[in-house]
């Protein structure tokens, strides 16, 4: 078989295949529920209900979506330039470390400490991705493997910090950092509701990234480098500099996920603040077709599946890992569907 480009794909073709991909994911969900001994319709209903059924569930979904918007944006920015940043997890953790250090040690007055924490996080995350990017542009070392391996290194480093220099002396021996003082915590958006300004910052970042991509020279260069780095170089673009700038933005965005989780939600740092937000960001970005505004929608969708599956798992007894399977399946079906909407499969 071979693939033939479809000259002008119809709207039905462009929407039909992605819709079929989502439908296929739902079928997989039903099958998995049945395998685990649940009633497929009831399990699916409980997932939806657990995600958006009550006010508490909706707030929980928004809270869970917040770090995913940041990591999803980080991945979307990088992948658009074909910079394969699989290290959002590491950047998130370094951002969280910087946040806690500045929040507990700097002694800055109230209104200054939060911006300083955010800036510190961005710098830490940006530096974290700049290293592998320079190794790629200067020495040709594949960034996929280096960013992946560094995730493990950074997690061990955080473990060391939490058992050593950053350990909370009042923590009853638990490996956690001291808590941030009250003025270093992100305020709630609406008093009394468990949703913090990290979510607002995430929306602002999504809009900002969209603005950069759609309206600036850098955004154009990032796309050009991603489409064809050689052609971009021939056209006189500083490809390596564009990749370095992309890395700074992407690493900084991922680090803001750590900032927002620590300063907005948890108040301190533990080694388990991220249950794989960095990796899930890849799924979020791909489902959004790497579009920064789409990332918001897909992060809400992905967060809903996680929150819903957690709640369903408690009542229906189907393991909550069903959520991770569904997201991986959705990702694979979606990339296939996007290809099929632009190419026709021909025999021979």
């Amino acid at each position: 078989m071979r693939l033939e480009p479809v000259e002008a794909p119809t709207l039905a073709r462009r929407l039909g295949y992605p819709a079929a991909a989502l439908a296929a994911t739902v079928v997989v969900a039903a099958l998995l529920a049945a395998v685990a001994g649940g009633n497929p319709a009831a399990v699916l209903g409980q997932i939806v209900d657990g995600a958006v059924g009550t006010k508490f569930a909706r707030l929980e979904t928004l809270n869970r979506a917040t770090p995913l918007i940041f990591t999803g944006l980080a991945v979307a920015v990088a992948f658009r330039a074909k910079l394969w940043n699989i290290g959002a997890e590491a950047q998130l953790y370094l951002g969280a470390v910087a946040t806690v250090l500045i929040g507990t040690q700097s002694g800055l007055p109230g209104p200054l400490v939060i911006p300083a924490m955010a800036a510190g996080a961005v710098i830490a995350g940006a530096a974290m991705l700049l290293g592998p990017t320079l190794l790629k542009t200067k020495l040709g070392v594949d960034e996929v493997v280096t960013t992946l391996l560094l995730n493990f290194v950074v997690l061990l480093f955080v473990g060391y910090l939490l058992e050593g220099p950053m350990k909370d002396p009042m923590g009853m021996g638990w490996p956690k950092s001291p808590s941030l003082p009250k003025e270093a915590r992100l305020p709630r958006i609406v008093e009394g509701l468990r949703l913090h300004w990290g979510f607002g910052l995430a929306l602002i970042c999504a809009f900002g990234v969209w603005l950069v991509q759609a309206r600036t020279t850098l955004g154009f260069e990032m796309r050009a480098v991603g489409l064809n780095a050689r052609a971009a170089r021939f056209a006189g673009m500083p490809v390596n500099a564009v990749l370095a700038k992309t890395a700074l933005i992407s690493g900084g965005l991922a680090a803001l996920a750590g900032f927002s989780e620590v300063a907005g939600l948890k108040g301190n740092l533990t080694a388990d603040i991220s249950p794989g937000f960095g990796y899930t960001g890849i799924v979020v970005a791909m489902l959004a077709l790497l579009n920064p505004l789409g990332v918001v929608v897909s992060a809400l969708f992905v967060a809903g599946i996680f929150v819903g599956a957690d709640s369903m798992s408690r009542s229906a007894g189907v393991p909550s890992y069903i959520a991770d399977i569904l997201l991986a399946t959705a990702l694979l079906f979606m990339v296939l569907a996007l290809m099929l909407s632009r190419f026709r499969v021909v025999r021979g």
Binding site: A36, V144, A328, L332
Partner: peptide
């Protein structure tokens, strides 16, 4: 996905790692 359909080997590979890992944990729990 990657050979006849020619999809991105990066994306499919990462997706497959997520799929195989979560399917394994799911199967273990079931």
């Amino acid at each position: 996905l990657t050979v006849p359909f020619g999809l991105s080997q990066h994306v499919v590979g990462i997706g497959l790692t997520l799929l195989a890992t979560s399917a394994t944990y799911f199967a273990y729990r079931v």
